[in-house]
Amino acid sequence: MVSSTTGFSSYFHFSQVNWPSMWSATVETIWMTIFSLVLVGILGILLGLLLFETTGSTNFWARLVHWVTALFVNVFRSVPFIILIVLLLPLTKNLVGTIIGPKAALPSLIISAAPFYARMVELAFHEIDHGVIEAAEAMGATRWQIIYKVLLPESSPALVSGITVTGISLIGFTAMAGVIGAGGLGNLAYLDGFQASNNTVTLVATIIILIVVFIFQTLGDLIVDKLDKRVAN
C-alpha cells in the first residue's frame, strides 16, 4: 500500500495506526506520570516543609538545612529536563538497572519535578495567614500538630492545584523522556510516527496526550473546588 507521507491528508490514514501499541503506550504514559507524581507529591511536600520551617531561623543548623535544601531545589529546577535525563543516565542505571523503558524515566522525572513542586508547597504555606498559626501556638499546639492540623489542611487547595500543574508538566516530561527510549506516547510518536514518517500516528498520540492533560486538569479543578471553603458556596 502506497500512501503519501506529506500533505494534509497524511494525518488521516487511520488504518496505519497500530491501536494495541497505541493503547499500551497510553498506559505507559499514564503509569509513568502517576507513579512519579505520587513520589513527587511526597518529596515536594517534605522539601517544601523543610524550606518553610527553616525560613528566617536564627539557629545555625536550621539555616544550614535551609541553604542546602534551597540550593538543591534551585539547581534541579533550573536544569532543562532533557539534559537532566542524560546527566542522570549513570545514576538511573544503578537505581533501576536499565536506561530503557518507562521505569528508566522515573528517577529523572522525580528529580526534576519534585523541586518544582517543593517551591509551590513552600509558597502555599507562606500564604496561610500567620495569625492562624499563632492562634494554634497560643492553644499549645506542638510544631508537628501545627503541620498536620493547620499547615496541610489550610493550604490544601493550593497543594492540589500545584500537584495538578506539576502533573501536567510531568506528562510533557514523559513525552520528552520517550524520545530517548523511555516508552509511552512520546516514544511511539517519535519512533512509529516521526521516524517511520507516519503522521497519523503522531497526530493520534498528540490527541491522546491532550485528552489525558484535559482529564487531569478537570479532576484537579474539581478537587480544589471541593476543598476550598474560603468562599461561601
Binding site: 501556638e137 497560643a138 493547620v150
Partner: peptide, 18 residues
Amino acid sequence: EARQKMGMIFQYFNLLWS
C-alpha cells in the same frame, strides 16, 4: 500545657477556614 489553660482571641478571629 500552660498555654492550654489560657484562651486568646484576636482582631481577625484567626479561625481555620478549612
